[in-house]
Simulated scan of single mutants.
Amino acid sequence: MIKQELIELIENKRAELIQVAVTNGLTSSIAIRYSQELDHLLNEYNRKYIKKTRRVASLS
């Protein structure tokens, strides 16, 4: 998955989470599931792009 695709998935999941939370509440089971899915996507982004950038910067 390329960086832009992952960013789009994150943005879409965040929008879905907001809508579900407004409709069903932050503690509803579906909001919790969407939040966990968003966490997974953010962790994947961090693993692939953020930590790699920091390592390269620290080598300079």
Rank of each mutant, 00 (worst) to 15 (best):
Y34F: 07
E37N: 04
Q36N: 08
Y45F: 10
I30W: 00
I2E: 15
A57K: 14
N24T: 05
E44K: 07
A15T: 12
K51L: 14
I50T: 14
K48E: 07
L9I: 06
D39H: 01
E8K: 14
K3D: 09
E8Y: 09
A15M: 11
L17W: 06
K52C: 08
I18G: 01
I7W: 04
E44G: 00
I32S: 01
E16R: 14
A21I: 04
N24I: 00
S29K: 09
L42K: 00
R14L: 14
E37P: 01
N43C: 03
Q36M: 04
S29T: 05
A57E: 15
V56F: 13
S60G: 13
N12Y: 06
Y34W: 01
L38R: 00
T23A: 13
A31E: 03
E11G: 03
K52S: 11
L6R: 03
S35N: 08
Y45V: 02
A21Y: 05
L26H: 09
T27A: 05
A57W: 11
L9R: 15
V22M: 11
L9T: 07
L42S: 00
R14M: 10
E11Y: 08
Y34H: 09
D39K: 01
N12K: 14
M1G: 14
R33W: 01
R54A: 11
N24D: 15
E5G: 05
T53Q: 13
I50L: 10
T23H: 09
A57M: 15
V56N: 10
N46T: 12
N12A: 12
L42E: 03
S58F: 14
S58A: 13
Y34V: 03
G25W: 04
E8F: 10
N46F: 06
K48N: 11
L41F: 06
I7H: 06
S58G: 05
V20H: 05
I50F: 09
Q19H: 10
V20E: 13
I18Q: 10
Y49S: 00
V22L: 12
